[in-house]
């Protein structure tokens, strides 16, 4: 049992892999915060009475003062930059994870819980709790220049001698596990819902797409129904899409068993998100840009190849 546990969670992984994951996830979140900054500042525009605290924001008794909310957003961006650069990762990264969870929870507290950034936030939290800044970071640079110092260990986790180590592996594996759980929960929601296993027949999926498109036709400046007319013309097209979606989601944890199954899972889910983007104009940027699936791959290898050639 213990051996199986160790084999599953504690596979040695290069420090560069988890460091690259920190940079990729951090950069995704940084562009999100910078690009949405203005909209988030005005998130209460429809009225303070539309606030209902979600996640960490549920600890609030009411909406924040606009000035304080602005300061929280700026602080989150500053900590995000430190997370990407790997500055005092052991201390600053957990603070960033908490603040980010609050910011995204608060942003979701105005009438709609958006599900596009749940996974990114969970991944950032895992990376914040793991030694993810032993490479490609300010922490690594400072340690190299100053040598062993106790305060560096306190701020940036103690040195790990081996280039590849289980201490870099568990965080990567946990990211993969969490990714598959999230998809399984989405699949479970479908089959335990009102439609049950009939969800696989495709009509429920068509109705959801049409419902979303109808609202977009009436409330979205760009409309949104152009593909739905075609779906109604060929209704059987959605049956294989519904069956494959259900199978992929419910069986997502199988991807943890073998590298090739992981590739198949990642490519299939990416295609599914592409389909959602085309049919419903709902973009999942974390998934579409591939960041959500990076933990399943040896992403340090292309960098190693480039470095070897120099």
């Amino acid at each position: 049992m213990k051996a199986a546990w160790n084999r599953f969670w504690f596979r040695p992984v290069p420090a560069r892999r988890i460091a690259l994951l920190r940079i990729a996830v951090g950069l995704y979140l940084l562009q999100l915060q910078l690009s949405e900054h203005r909209a988030w500042l005005r998130v209460s525009r429809a009225g303070q009475d539309t606030f209902e605290g979600i996640g960490l924001a549920s600890l609030l008794s009411g909406p924040l003062d606009d000035g304080l909310w602005g300061a929280v957003l700026v602080s989150s961006i500053v900590l995000n930059v430190a997370f990407v650069l790997g500055i005092a990762h052991r201390v600053i990264a957990p603070l960033f994870a908490i603040l980010l969870t609050f910011v995204l929870g608060y942003r979701n507290s105005w009438g709609q819980v958006y599900h596009v950034n749940h996974l990114a936030c969970l991944h950032a939290t895992i990376l914040a709790l793991a030694p993810a800044a032993h490479a490609f970071s300010v922490d690594a640079w400072v340690r190299k220049r100053l040598g062993e110092r106790r305060w560096i260990d306190v701020l940036a986790w103690p040195r790990i001698e081996a280039a590849s180590d289980w201490r870099f592996g568990w965080g990567v594996q946990l990211m993969c596990v969490v990714t598959t759980i999230v998809y399984s929960l989405a699949g479970l929601a479908k089959v335990t819902g009102e439609a049950g296993w009939r969800w696989a027949l495709g009509s429920n999926l068509r109705d959801q797409i049409a419902y979303d498109a109808l609202y977009k036709e009436l409330l979205h400046p760009d409309g949104g129904g152009e593909w739905v007319w075609r779906i109604y013309a060929y209704p059987d097209l959605l049956i294989p899409a519904a069956v494959v979606t259900l199978l992929l989601e419910l069986l997502a944890p199988v991807a943890l068993l073998h590298r090739r199954l992981a590739w198949l899972f990642c490519i299939s889910m990416w295609l599914a998100h592409l389909g959602i983007d085309v049919l419903m104009t709902i973009l999942f940027p974390y998934q579409i840009f591939g960041v959500a699936y990076l933990s399943f791959f040896a992403i340090e290898r292309p960098i190693d190849w480039v470095l070897r050639r120099r």
Binding site: G105, H115, H118, L185, A189
Partner: peptide, 16 residues
């Protein structure tokens, strides 16, 4: 109710 970042994805449950 639904939450962040832990969700049970309730939007997939209903029948329109």
């Amino acid at each position: 109710s639904d939450s962040f970042p832990l969700s049970w994805y309730p939007m997939f449950r209903g029948v329109r």
